[in-house]
């Protein structure tokens, strides 16, 4: 059923697909680090040297009972349940920012466990439910 013309086209098509996949693989392996939007506190702790002037983004959970607020400055601990990072920030935080929730902070590292942030983003997880359901969940715990 397949004529010679169609076979040629199919061959051409598959070679194009193969070549583009190859190219994309190269691009992927050279950009691997940059695709990640944030690093975890554990990844920060194993970095060899701290570049003082470059901004980085770190994501994790805000540790329970760790938010201290005085005046406009807010100080809290970001954790991935293995390593912790102290974050200091000046300014308003997003509505969803609270304890035991995900957050992404952007700023400069002072040392491996101290970060001065100039932007805080709240991370939302994949769970959606009405408020009553949340209460039932909490009572079940």
């Amino acid at each position: 059923m397949l004529t010679k013309k169609i076979k040629t086209r199919l061959f051409f098509l598959s070679s194009v697909i193969f070549i583009t996949l190859l190219f994309l693989a190269f691009i992927y392996f050279s950009l691997k680090e940059n695709i990640l939007y944030f690093k975890t506190p554990s990844e920060i702790s194993i970095v060899d040297e701290i570049q003082n002037n470059s901004k980085i983004r770190v994501g994790g959970m805000v540790k329970k009972d760790s938010i201290q607020q005085n005046n406009k400055e807010i100080k809290f601990i970001l954790t991935d349940y293995k390593k912790e990072l102290i974050v200091v920030y000046n300014g308003a935080v997003p509505n969803l920012f609270s304890e035991e929730r995900g957050a992404v902070v952007e700023g400069k590292l002072n040392d491996k466990s101290y970060l001065i942030a100039d932007r805080i983003l709240a991370k939302h997880d994949e769970n959606y439910m009405p408020p009553e359901m949340k209460k039932i969940f909490e009572n079940a715990k």
């Binding site: 695709i35 939007y37 935080v93 997003p94 509505n95 969803l96 920012f97 932007r119 805080i120 983003l121 709240a122 991370k123 939302h124």
Partner: peptide, 12 residues
């Protein structure tokens, strides 16, 4: 904007 705190982020 109301949830994350930003309109746009260059994530994947």
């Amino acid at each position: 904007k109301p949830t994350w705190g930003t309109w746009w982020a260059w994530d994947a």
